[in-house]
Design a protein around this nucleic acid. Structure first.
Lengths: 213, 213
DNA sequence: GCCAGGATGTCAGTTGCTGACATCCTGGCT
DNA sequence: AGCCAGGATGTCAGCAACTGACATCCTGGC
């Protein structure tokens, strides 16, 4: 299939990651990436629409795992439970087939370059709309589906960040679950009495703040 | 202050918006924008770091309003209530000083160009971290602050989308509040019994799905 | 009326990205 | 074995976004 070595795409990804770590993202040129992979700049752009995109090949798999998990959840599960479980499953898959060192290096890169964070955010937004669509296919109504999906992404973001920032590695799914619980604690309280700024003092709020950690 | 006419920045924003609507975003050149504003391409890039950035001058105000509202919320309010109220206030401010036609035109532009959606998403993410920081200053603990902030952004996104997509215009704050309620309904239910895919059937889930609309 | 300093212009150059077209290799067919 | 179709790669030219360095201009204060 390939003209020389096989797996041009994989070679490009590997070369890109190496160079980004050696010289930094901004000082690496697409031409250099292609050269290290034994290819041409033009060929790079046949595989990736963007210079940035070379770092995001995994997101398609993630989205697939996520949608499958949502579709396969038990029929009577509540939306947020479905979504949280789906993100845990996707997180487990991610953890299973990527080295921790790679995950950290990539995360560091993305964190310090705004253009890459933008791309990451749009991928996450894409996950959210896919999850929302999958929920709607399960007859979850409309503000609820989008909100549950966005909540899932929020929980994933927070869980992921804590997972990566931890030395002693507990699993990613554990962190996602904890974040889900924290979200329930924050969002689940009756609330609504303070809808207007300047709402009168309400005695029970001590207990709430305590629960929110 | 300015060399010729005053308010170079404003002229650039106006020219950009006009041209984007006339020829579309992609077919408009920075040089053209600058020319219509009576300036040079180089000057454009002195005011805006990016071609995209010319559409996002409002987000700084939004962030300011948001942070102020969080800081000024009553001392005993629960995190999500604080955040929801703050986004309602910021939404009211936005609604107050932008014409609906402008909002819709800008929204249409952003929606159909991925690069612009990326920028929008990173602005929203920036709002979220600012809100989380403001919450932490109020002694809200850490997973809670980030999650409440992300929840606020989710609620804003959903509320905004519904507001813009509506002919008969109710206010943006109303939509945000409705989204907040829907989120509470989705996230607030006890949940957690379906944390593993394959959890046993639980009878009370009918009521839940009904409540989630 | 002069002068410091900020705003603008000019110019040259790099890099991301694209279209058009040529070339090459591979696998299948006879 | 030899040939052929078609996908993968290369080559080339070009546009537009963006940047650094330096020149020039206007404005407000003295």
């Amino acid at each position: 299939m390939a003209r020389w070595e096989p797996d041009a795409r994989g070679r490009l990804e590997k070369a890109a990651m190496e160079l980004f770590r050696e010289r930094g993202y901004a000082r690496t040129t697409v031409e250099e990436i292609a050269a290290r992979a034994g290819l041409t700049e033009r060929t790079f752009f046949r595989y990736f629409s963007d210079k940035r995109e070379v770092l995001f090949s995994g997101s398609a798999d993630l989205q697939g795992a996520l949608v499958a998990a949502v579709a396969g959840a038990p029929a009577d599960a509540a939306p947020l439970a479905i979504v949280a479980t789906a993100f845990e499953a996707a997180g487990a898959a991610l953890e299973a087939h990527r080295e921790m060192a790679y995950v950290r290096a990539r995360h560091a890169l993305v964190s310090e370059h705004a253009e890459l964070r933008e791309r990451e955010l749009i991928k996450l937004a894409s996950l959210a709309t896919a999850v929302a669509t999958a929920l709607r296919a399960r007859k979850v109504g409309e503000p609820a589906a989008s909100l549950a999906a966005e909540a899932g992404v929020a929980v994933f973001k927070v869980g992921f960040e804590r997972w990566v920032g931890e030395k002693k590695a507990r699993g990613l799914p554990v962190h996602i679950r904890e974040a889900t619980e924290a979200l329930r604690a924050v969002a689940g309280d009756a609330g609504g009495e303070a809808d207007r700024v300047g709402a009168r003092a309400a005695p029970r709020s001590e207990a709430k703040r305590a629960r929110a950690r």
